[in-house]
Amino acid sequence: MAGSATPLWEVFIRSRNGLSHKHVGSLHAADATLALHAARDLYTRRGEGLSIWVVPSNAITASDPADKGMMFEPAASKIYRHPTFYEVPEEVGHM
């Protein structure tokens, strides 16, 4: 099994020009080059991608689920931040 010799990597794939890279999963690999190969073999077998990023999982700083209250709940009461309060004049058409 994959141990410390093969740390965890997060994989991001950009499927088309103009779109952004999207997280698709993770894998184990010894180094960045092998991680890129493994990402190609695991996540682009059905033509999903035009570009791959691999990032060491331990390079990601994540928010603590326990901080959910102070991190995200204050935004819930500020519905005026959503653009739904503006009426789009008909002449503007589809936005």
Partner: peptide
């Protein structure tokens, strides 16, 4: 030896 290599070899 590992799932990643399993897929690569099959590919």
């Amino acid at each position: 030896p590992a799932m990643e290599e399993d897929m690569a070899l099959a590919n």
